[in-house]
Nucleic acid binder design. Structure first.
Lengths: 200, 200
DNA sequence: ACCTGAACACCGTTCAAGT
DNA sequence: ACCTGAACACCGTTCAAGT
């Protein structure tokens, strides 16, 4: 989507702006998403932007909607794959988390969400979907509903944290992923022992 | 630390700037940390700021150092409490995570860390310390070293994620915290069964 | 040594004027 | 309807000049 292609077509649509902004966000990070930069790339002046959008926040909302729409579709597609064992579904999701290209987008969206309710709502929708997929997969592994809920929450939050931490902490290896899955699938007795029916 | 108090003392120190900036970050969030705002609060002009600091990034680094110094001290203090059972140490740490006042600081620092290596190093130091404390506490609960490492990592990342997610997901209740601790302390058999010596 | 005051660059926002 | 062009506000940064 170059300036030349747009020029031939005539007027810029809101989606032209959003698409280019998302490209910039993925390729050069959040600091590249500026109105002046977009205008330069698209070959117009700032007034053109303000014809389509009320302000910068409005563009960010649009970016969030586009991004979440795409990734929701991906997650939904994964959920359809009932041919896959729950084990493999879980694994596919945890591996998807390693795609670094998506990280800067996620970080920016969560930051924007803090000052924009509509972005927050869009993001939350995706989070809940992921949580539910993971929760159900863990349940199918034979873990009780109550425990599956806790573990899914832990995993989702860990995923978010993993994306946000530059953390020279430890970058999990493939082997660690398997250990993680074992841990999530485990059915250890509770400390207080209240969660299991007596073995009569 | 009001403008009046400073004025009586004469010259502003670098720590005066850093302290006020940290206050602003905690009280009003990252958007309040601006040079012009600081100058207004401290009753001087911008030139005064640039006498003490090279640029804004330099101030951010200073804020990070101050904050991490404080919290490292807190963590170290907690580590000294060998009187506490590992169980209670873990609990104290997870509960400390619920102090919302610290969240905006953490989020800002991690964001700054992405474009400033020195901030990143300071943050990473604190992360590693927390990881180690948690890892050891879990080990003391009778979990193997290898497993403790994985679980500590999971918990640290979940903590970071918890702070970053506006996530209408689920805000864990007190009961969930206990369940979480049970889970971390559990010693479930591995899926492949390679981590345990045969029971001969 | 420490700060003022004025300038400049950059970016978001507005708006009258063009086609 | 869609965009230009010029203006303005705000903030980071610089620097000569003051004390």
């Amino acid at each position: 989507m170059t300036a030349g292609q747009i020029a031939k077509r005539g007027a810029l649509t809101a989606d032209d702006w959003t698409a280019r902004a998302l490209e910039l966000l993925m390729d050069e990070g959040v600091s590249a998403v500026k109105i002046s930069r977009l205008c330069g790339d698209l070959g117009v002046t700032k007034g053109s932007f303000y014809w389509r959008f009320e302000d910068l926040a409005s563009l960010k909302e649009s970016i969030a909607a586009k991004w979440c729409g795409d990734s929701t579709q991906m997650l939904a597609g994964l959920a359809e794959l009932t041919t896959l064992e729950p084990w493999d579904r879980l694994r596919t999701m945890t591996v998807a988390l390693v795609d670094e290209r998506a990280w800067s987008v996620q970080r920016a969206l969560r930051e924007w969400a803090r000052t924009d309710e509509r972005v927050a709502a869009t993001i939350a929708e995706g989070d809940v979907l992921a949580f539910d997929l993971i929760r159900r997969a863990i349940e199918e592994l034979g873990v009780s509903a109550r425990r599956a809920r806790l573990r899914a929450g832990l995993l989702v939050y860990a995923g978010i944290g993993f994306v946000h931490g530059p953390s020279a902490l430890f970058r999990p290896a493939i082997g660690d992923l398997d250990d993680l899955m074992d841990f999530l699938a485990g059915d250890a007795p509770t400390h207080a022992g209240v969660d299991q029916p007596p073995a009569t």
